[in-house]
Structures are given as structure tokens and as C-alpha cells.
């Protein structure tokens, strides 16, 4: 009974996460390439980092997240496949979370010669774009929470009826 409601939605989800995976792989590769060439790239609201720690290691993690999405997007009804997609999102949350936390850490103090706390405008300015690819991918990766909730709900129902 529970299986009937699954097939239609995962295919949409499959396409969605495959596309997200492609975008994520591209971001990861871009970060790695820029790090290798030692430069940085800013375009509109996008800023691709190029230092060894953030661009190199961070880029590797973003690339891994993308590969997890791509390999998990097929046949997402299977719990092991679905877990890969969830893990891909978790990796993006780690990188984006660190990027955002770095902004928070920077926004609060007033700077070397300034007051103790940052001014309101200085505080808000820190959060202005450009953002790293991981931060831009973050909202799209959150979609996975919807599917986790849905699955837990279905599984819970399945357990009670069996």
C-alpha cells in the first residue's frame, strides 16, 4: 500500500537531484581548478574561492557532494541510494555552514580600530553578496528534508501496520 504512492514522486526527485548534482560537481571542479591556478573568480553574486584550504579541501568536499547526488539520484526508492542523496546534502551543509559561520564571526566585532561591536551597517554589509557556490546551493539542497520527512512518515506507517 505504501509502495504505490512512492514511484511517481521519486522520478521527479531523481531528476531534481541529478540536476543539482551536475551543478554541484561543476562548482566543486571550478573551485579545484581555480585553486590549482591560484586565482579567484567573482561574477555577479557568485564568488568562487581559490585558497588552498577553502578552495582545495572545500572544493574537494563540494565535488564529493555532487558525485554523491549523481550516484544516488537513480532509483531513490532504495534506502541506500536515498542515503547518498541525504549525505550529499549534509556535505553541502557542512561547507555552506562553515562559510556562513565565517561571515557571522566577521560581522560581530568592530574591527581593529573601531568600536567593540560592529556598526549596524557594517554588520549587514558582511552578509552582502557575492557568495560561495556552496552557499548558493544550500537552499536547493534543503529540499532533501522534505523527502526525508516523507519517507520517515511512510516507514513509520509501514511499521505499525506490519
Amino acid at each position: 500500500m505504501t509502495e504505490e504512492s512512492l514511484p511517481s514522486s521519486p522520478s521527479i526527485a531523481g531528476i531534481y537531484f541529478a540536476l543539482l548534482g551536475i551543478a554541484t560537481v561543476a562548482s566543486g571542479l571550478a573551485e579545484l581548478l581555480l585553486t590549482a591556478s591560484g586565482s579567484e573568480f567573482v561574477y555577479g553574486i557568485l564568488e568562487i574561492p581559490g585558497d588552498i584550504f577553502r578552495g582545495g579541501w572545500g572544493g574537494f568536499v563540494v565535488l564529493s557532494a555532487g558525485l554523491l547526488y549523481l550516484s544516488g539520484a537513480r532509483n531513490m526508492v532504495d534506502i541506500h541510494q536515498f542515503a547518498k542523496v541525504v549525505m550529499g546534502s549534509i556535505l553541502i551543509w557542512i561547507i555552506a555552514g562553515c562559510d556562513i559561520f565565517a561571515m557571522i564571526a566577521e560581522s560581530i566585532p568592530g574591527g581593529e580600530d573601531g568600536p567593540w561591536l560592529n556598526t549596524l551597517s557594517g554588520f549587514i554589509e558582511t552578509y552582502a553578496p557575492p557568495y560561495s557556490p556552496a552557499v548558493l546551493l544550500l537552499p536547493f539542497s534543503l529540499v532533501v528534508i522534505y523527502y526525508v520527512r516523507k519517507r520517515v512518515f511512510l516507514e513509520g506507517g509501514g511499521r505499525n501496520s506490519s
Binding site: 568536499v61 549525505m87 556535505l91 559561520f101 564571526a105 566577521e106
Partner: peptide, 24 residues
């Protein structure tokens, strides 16, 4: 899959460590 995840965890550990202790 485990090694990239471990790298991500260590990355997060180090990044938050630097942001909180150093920058903030």
C-alpha cells in the same frame, strides 16, 4: 564514500575552529 565524508568533517572542524577562536 567514507573518506570524502571524513575529509568534510575535518574540514568543518578546522574551519569552525578558526572562525570562532581566531576571527571572532
Amino acid at each position: 564514500t567514507g573518506i570524502p565524508i571524513a575529509i568534510a568533517v575535518l574540514y568543518g572542524f578546522w574551519s569552525l575552529f578558526g572562525s570562532f577562536a581566531g576571527t571572532l
